[in-house]
Design a protein around this nucleic acid. Structure first.
Length: 310
DNA sequence: TAGACGTGGGT
DNA sequence: TACCCAAGTCT
């Protein structure tokens, strides 16, 4: 147990100072040039729409599971207007098992907004992006940076972890993004616009491939020599538990089962088919009501249900 | 602001 | 076997 303001020290007791931003940029950018994954949304042909679709899908879902769905999605709906012309239920169906299907609904709604308000082109402005459904602080910065090469602090879970370790000297960032983290991210951002966009992708990739949540690989890290956390002897995380959400038995699990039935059905589904997925009737009804009020399920006459047609 | 919101693979 | 984790957003 250390006091809050105890300075981080190395193994000999000497204080460890964070590296100046300029000394981190070169090594991380060079590492990225060599080790960046060849992901489809990073190719020029992906365009802003491809970047935006990938960002929606990657919210809380691993890359490997996103890849096949992304390819099918872009092949079927190559422009926002193509998706906007479809029923929202088709987006939910095509979302498959990526999880958090409300993202599919929001992506569909965002495509409609882009078609109606932005002439069918993904907007370039951070504020305009932020105004779209399903786009928050992170995704707005990510699209503006990755798709349009703009200079924004892109603070996702990977970047937050890299900065927490390299610059702040702690194992994990706080549960919620803090003002101090935003300030630090802005301070570390290269001045040049194109370099800043590259830095955003590079620092994210470093967190995804090397500076991972568990089993970090400092031997492959380009800034290990400047990492405050490592130089301080990798002190263990202290503070409140980082997460904690059981899944079995929750409404989320019931919702997932209900929606799976509807996704795999061709047309409308009778109540009895939904009743079969969960035996506790009160929770089952609550979950179904929730799906309906979220717009993920459309109730019809005669106890039939289907994915939303409008 | 804490909690809801899916899913599946790794350890 | 459980728990942790994955490019968050919304209320």
């Amino acid at each position: 147990m250390t006091s809050i303001d105890a300075p981080l020290t190395d193994l000999t007791g000497l204080p460890v100072a964070p590296a100046p931003a300029e000394e981190l940029h070169g090594p991380v950018l060079a590492w990225f040039d060599r080790h960046a994954r060849d992901l489809p949304w990073r190719r020029p042909e992906a365009g802003a729409w491809g970047v935006m679709v990938s960002e929606f899908m990657l919210q809380q879902t691993p890359v490997v599971r996103v890849l096949p769905v992304y390819e099918q999605w872009l092949a079927r709906w190559p422009r926002p207007a193509d998706l906007a012309a479809e029923a929202p239920g088709e987006a939910v169906r095509a979302w498959g098992r990526l999880g958090y299907p409300r993202r599919a609904l929001r992506l569909h709604a965002a495509a409609q907004a882009i078609t109606e308000r932005h002439g069918g082109d993904v907007p370039r402005g951070h504020a305009q992006l932020l105004a779209l459904p399903g786009i928050g602080e992170y995704t707005a910065a990510a699209v503006a940076s990755f798709a349009y090469g703009q200079r924004h602090a892109v603070l996702d879970t990977n970047v937050r972890r890299v900065f927490a370790r390299a610059a702040t000297g702690v194992q994990y960032p706080p549960n919620a993004t803090t003002a101090a983290e935003r300030r630090l991210a802005r301070e570390l951002l290269p001045r040049d616009e194109g370099t800043a966009a590259r830095w955003a992708a590079a620092s994210m990739e470093l967190g995804a491939l090397v500076c991972t949540a568990r089993n970090e690989d400092c031997g492959r890290c380009p800034i290990a020599a400047r990492c405050v956390w490592r130089l301080s002897g990798k002190p263990a995380h202290d503070g409140p538990p980082r997460r904690g959400q059981t899944y079995a038995g929750t409404d989320r699990q019931v919702r997932g089962r209900l929606l799976a039935v509807l996704r795999e059905a061709v047309g409308a589904v009778p109540q009895a088919a939904l009743d079969a997925v969960w035996d506790e009737p009160v929770q089952r009804a609550r979950a179904l009501d929730g799906l309906v009020s979220d717009g993920l399920v459309e109730p019809l006459e005669g106890g039939l249900y289907r994915l939303p047609q409008s």
